[in-house]
Amino acid sequence: MNIFRLTGDLSHLAAIIILLLKIWKTRSCAGISGKSQILFALVFTTRYLDLLTSFISFYNTIMKLIYIGCAYATVYLIYMKFKATYDGNHDSFRLEFLVVPVGGLACLVNHDFSFLEILWTFSIYLESVAILPQLFMISKTGEAETITTHYLFFLGLYRALYLFNWIWRFYFEGFFDMIAIVAGVVQTILYCDFFYLYVTKVLKGKKLSLPA
């Protein structure tokens, strides 16, 4: 555990909690892509199956359970409790266009052709693109609520901090996982355009809206 890994995890946690609180406090999931949230629930479910087979640390177990629990709670709020506020017409990204190629790639490029490892690899690849339905939705509506942009900022920051964690681990531990690194780079790049808008608009007190 190094400072980048810890702040990365906390940034990820902050993002998840911000989104849950936003939906709960406003009693609305307007502007939130339910499809991205389904993908994140799928990411955590397929990645954390090792909870059933091995124990790593108290921290590890608790964080995994919180991530999974919050992901399903978010999906529940969007599709059940506050379903009336869900903007399904603008959330029109086709999930199969992500899940099917990612599943194929996980079977072809992985560290070990075993059930748990393929699902782990699938989750790494899927996470890197899981935000696309949300970004697609924002590009369709042309705007995002400020609290939604805070969520996206912390979610993007988390993987960027993991990149620094991997650089640290490479130098100090000789640890190196090409699959995680490449997927992490792709994931971080997808947020770059958003980061730019966040810094130039949202942090200066303006609402995030895209030019028509």
């Binding site: 964080m63 991530y67 490892e117 782990w120």
Partner: peptide, 10 residues
Amino acid sequence: DDVVTDKDEL
């Protein structure tokens, strides 16, 4: 074994 991925990272 280096084929098993790191399950400590989240």
